[in-house]
Computed example of a mutant assay.
Amino acid sequence: MWKLNLSLLDGEEEQEGSLFGESDGLCSLSPLQRIYGFAASLVAGLAFMLLSLIVFARPIKFAIMFSFGNILAVGSTAFLIGPGQQIRMMLDSSRIYATAMYIGSVFLALIFALWIHNKVLTLLAMICEICALIWYGLSYIPFARRMVSELFISCCDTEI
């Protein structure tokens, strides 16, 4: 597991085993800057998601705001662990299908909202996006997806 390590060695970040060790060669942000970037991106994403509820009656505007907020919120962790590690974690064998469903439903919602302008399809894609985001989030909690699956199976199992 990643551990939060803010100590500096000779003015440089500790590279092995720390949460902030990977910079992917793109930029080198200080640990405090990474935390600020994470917080700003997460707060902006949550704000977009909450503000999208105001325009819920207009599915196209709702889809655009909610999808953009989701992308910001999910991408916020890239500030902490680096974009390369974020992508590797998203493409891990235990969550590759959840990631594909999530990214696909975000794209479908935006396509249905921006190009096709179909409210019903946009709402269906948004429902899929929310379900895929929940399933993706559960992949980070040990045994959570198995527990939810068994719960749904037991609730839907109707023997007469």
Rank of each mutant, 00 (worst) to 15 (best):
A40H: 06
A40R: 09
S41W: 01
S41A: 11
L42M: 15
L42S: 14
L46Q: 14
L46T: 13
L46W: 00
A47G: 05
M49S: 04
L50W: 00
L50S: 13
L50V: 11
L51G: 06
L51E: 14
L51T: 09
S52R: 03
S52F: 00
R58W: 02
P59D: 03
I60E: 13
K61W: 08
K61T: 05
F62T: 02
F62P: 04
I64C: 05
S67H: 10
L72E: 09
L72R: 11
A73Y: 00
G75I: 00
S76Q: 06
F79W: 13
F79H: 12
I81C: 04
G82R: 11
P83H: 07
P83Q: 04
G84D: 08
Q85E: 13
Q86M: 09
I87F: 15
I87H: 14
R88S: 04
L91A: 08
D92N: 14
S94N: 11
S94P: 01
A98V: 00
A100S: 15
M101R: 07
Y102A: 01
Y102G: 01
G104Y: 13
V106M: 10
A109E: 07
A109N: 06
A109K: 07
L110Y: 13
L110W: 15
A113P: 01
A113W: 08
A113T: 02
W115H: 09
W115A: 05
I116Y: 08
I116C: 01
H117T: 09
K119I: 02
L121E: 02
L121T: 03
M126T: 14
C128H: 13
E129M: 11
C131F: 10
A132Q: 10
A132F: 04
A132R: 08
L133E: 12
L133I: 01
